[in-house]
Design a protein around this nucleic acid. Structure first.
Lengths: 338, 338
DNA sequence: TTGAAAGCGCTAACAA
DNA sequence: TTGTTAGCGCTTTCAA
């Protein structure tokens, strides 16, 4: 049997479709009418068709979310939190992912599907076409992790301050050869981390050895860079790493080279999770707060939905340096020619 | 300015809406017509409204996916792979999550949104109402990880064979006190793992010490159970753990008790990932293949969509025991009263 | 307070 | 090959 429609309910209840619609939408009706409709409704197990409803109301109750890679546990946490928040507001998550030119297709698809809002995590700032599409996207849009002065609503993580703080901490422990493995500077995270790194050195009146800054393209094997900074007489005595994957690799390398942590090598990882906290030694991390980030994302989106005349706002959520056991004073016996 | 519609394009091209529709849908038209329409289309930057289209065609091109908890990295991998597969077929992922009674609301929401298919990972088999909703769901449905003889299409992981194989391996190493930390048996994974465990013991003509089987409710602190099996003269010499989170805890406990791995304690973890492979010692795991699982999920769904008259099929994807360095022969000096 | 009817943007059947 | 038109299921005027 086919799904029942509002007509069926109207016929069953002996009223007009308009009246059924009013009951469904909580508009003022007589108790008698309401009761008749409710009875017919539950008898027929009627559920309104949100497609038809959306077409009339121009509102789908769906929010599009695009990330370059869903499998990244980092995004998993965001998606989870986002889903909860949107749910609480009666919104549903339309998820899509992909890299490079797929991003534009996704924007078009979200347009066709008439999403009420769009949260976008681009994997590049350089794609002018994509940026154009995003700019003329008709629904409220929030961009994460990318820098677009004043044109977009955006939420970004305060990696600059965070990284400066992390480097400060290492400098205070006496480290001078601090390696920074970081995403490419074409995107906010990579750019800001590098800036924070340089700021810290500048404030200490120290010069930066550019060989210790290793920008890593996505998908590139980080091992060569890791080896480059961990070997030789001038090796780094401290590492700042961009995530658990590379951290695991670094720990493995350290073992192979007989470097104990934190005695011979100090490590700070960016992004906190279960196992870095329980590893031996527990890893000091620069944590960025998922909940705060998602709150900002959702708030910015909802604000726009409520008042489309608002001017773009950009939020930076601060990071937190979580001190554990993977950092110690600089080793005195090696790492320096004498 | 408002979005342009098919009417605008028709007017601009000087043709009828029907003709525009035909061009849009690749039906046979004259080259001249096609060209006129394409010109108007790009001039107006027209994108068809999929809501209106869906209403006519009764097909939304959306697939609903429900999981109890998106943040679980396990599901992250599935979502990612699923998104890719569905994308390749022009389908979009509608994501929802939640526990307990929220599941039913989600099913209703998916119904209202007229998804073309539904993939569901329930967090319980006991919810008769939910099962009823799922059964009368109008679109093709595939259920994961739950056992419903013959009524549903389903994909499950072969934990029974896998666990038997893992226990076999430990028994062959001489272990007799093997602890199994496992989800509650009210769901397939918990039930099957326990069955596999018992099978292995039975095949070796050994009796099971029920105290070593520790069913863990979701959200419950696993530490007491971990401690219970890791302490005392009769402690377990081998652990089978349900995931990375508990693994991290167990490794921490082992350190605190001065148990070295695999010398004093052997460990097998279920579910493979980066860091268990790079941990020292590398952890032996029972891996379940995400790609195979998702392939099965999508295949079953697509098959149903193509031919609604098919009879339910249930697929079990096999696991793989990945041998690494966390298991060794049973320690001879302790763990047994003599 | 309720009913009747227009119309959202599109597809598909029917005509021409 | 193309145009005309009904109608998908709903909301929302406008009348009664």
């Amino acid at each position: 049997m086919a799904r029942s429609t509002i007509k069926d309910v109207a016929r069953e209840a002996g009223v007009s479709v308009g009246s059924v619609s009013r009951v469904l939408n909580g508009l003022p009706v007589s108790p008698r009418l309401r009761q008749k409709v409710e009875e017919a409704r539950s008898l027929l197990q009627y559920e309104p068709n949100s497609l038809a409803r959306s077409m009339r109301t121009n509102s789908t109750g769906a929010v599009g979310f695009f990330v370059p890679d869903v499998a990244n546990p980092l995004y998993g946490a965001i998606i989870n939190s986002l889903d909860r928040r949107l749910n609480a507001r009666g919104l549903m998550l339309l998820l899509a992912s992909g890299r490079g030119r797929m991003a534009r297709d996704v924007v078009a698809e979200f347009r066709r599907r008439q999403v009420d809002g769009l949260i976008f995590v681009p994997d590049s700032e350089d794609d002018a076409d994509l940026m154009h599409d995003l700019e003329r996207f008709s629904a409220p849009t929030v961009i994460q992790s990318v820098e677009f002065p004043s044109r977009f609503y955006g939420v970004r993580v305060g990696y600059r301050d965070g990284t400066r703080q992390a480097v400060d901490y290492l400098l205070d422990l006496g480290h001078r050869r601090i390696a920074l493995l970081t995403p490419l500077p074409h995107l906010w995270p990579g750019r800001e981390r590098q800036a924070g790194y340089r700021e810290a050195f500048r404030q200490h009146d120290l010069t930066v050895d550019d060989d210790l800054i290793r920008p890593l393209a996505i998908g590139r094997d980080p091992l060569p860079d890791l080896k480059a900074v961990m070997q030789g007489p001038d090796r780094a005595t401290a590492l700042i790493l961009p995530g658990s994957h590379i951290l695991a690799l670094a720990l493995q390398q350290a073992r192979e080279h007989g470097l104990s942590i934190p005695h011979d090598l100090s490590i700070i990882s960016i992004g906190d999770n279960d196992w870095v906290a329980t590893y031996a030694p527990a890893i000091t991390t620069l944590r960025w707060p998922v909940e705060t980030l998602v709150d900002a994302l959702v708030d910015l989106l909802i604000n726009q939905m409520d008042d489309r005349s608002l001017r773009p706002v950009q939020v930076i959520v601060p990071t937190e340096l979580v001190l554990r056991d993977s950092c110690g004073p600089v080793p005195s016996t090696d790492g320096r020619a004498c």
